[in-house]
Structures are given as structure tokens and as C-alpha cells.
């Protein structure tokens, strides 16, 4: 895996996936910093992990379920109180179609 690091094109692609604007200078810097961390991460390549189960949770809980019973909702004013832009009782955003 990526001991070779990550090139600026990959940085731009990942930034796009993560919805992060990065200037040209930031892309270069990020590529260098990530490469350093990825080199350290690559040390796990030396481990033999065949047949090892992945761990997603360290808790052994199952079926943490909730009864299907309604509880009070937030009043609309509270739901909207922190919104950067409000229109028609909703959260306004630049239209995705635009």
C-alpha cells in the first residue's frame, strides 16, 4: 500500500470527496504531510493478519433497540434557530440544480 505516498492529483480527488476546498499551495503541503503519516501507517504492512477478524466494535452489545413510541419533537423555531439561511420555514441552500 501507499508507502509511495499520495500525489497532488489524489489529494485533489480526496478533497473533492470530502468537500474541502484546497488552494494549490495547500494541496502541495497536504500531499507532503499525508505522505509522512502514510509512511508511518505503512508499518502495519509488516504484520501477518491473515485470518484475523476485523474489529468494528469493542462492546459486545447487540440489539440496542428503541420502542416505536413517538416523543415530542423540537418546535420549528428551535430547529431553525441556528440555520445560516432560512426560507419558507426550511433550511435554505444553493440549489443543487443550479
Amino acid at each position: 500500500m501507499g508507502a509511495e505516498g499520495i500525489d497532488p492529483d489524489e489529494v485533489r480527488h480526496v478533497a473533492r470527496l470530502a468537500r474541502l476546498e484546497l488552494s494549490g499551495e495547500e494541496v502541495e503541503r497536504m500531499a507532503g504531510e499525508l505522505a509522512g503519516v502514510l509512511r508511518h501507517i505503512a508499518t502495519i504492512d509488516e504484520l501477518d493478519l491473515d485470518g484475523v477478524e476485523p474489529t468494528s466494535h469493542v462492546v459486545s452489545v447487540e440489539n440496542a433497540l428503541r420502542p416505536d413510541v413517538p416523543r415530542p419533537c423540537l418546535p420549528r423555531e428551535r430547529a431553525l434557530e441556528s440555520a445560516p439561511e432560512v426560507a419558507d420555514d426550511g433550511f435554505a441552500v444553493p440549489s443543487p440544480q443550479a
Partner: peptide
């Protein structure tokens, strides 16, 4: 965010996230 997005992105998941989960098990 960049590191995590990269580790989960198509083609890298197994090499990074999958392996790291197994190290966690060990």
C-alpha cells in the same frame, strides 16, 4: 478528514481500514 477519506476511498479500504481493524483485533 483527508487521511480518513483517503483510507475509506475506493481501492484503499482493504489496505488501510480493513488492515487497521485487524490490527485492532490483535
Amino acid at each position: 478528514i483527508m487521511l480518513g477519506t483517503y483510507a475509506l476511498s475506493s481501492g484503499y479500504y482493504d489496505a488501510y481500514y480493513g488492515r487497521a481493524q485487524r490490527v485492532r483485533t490483535k
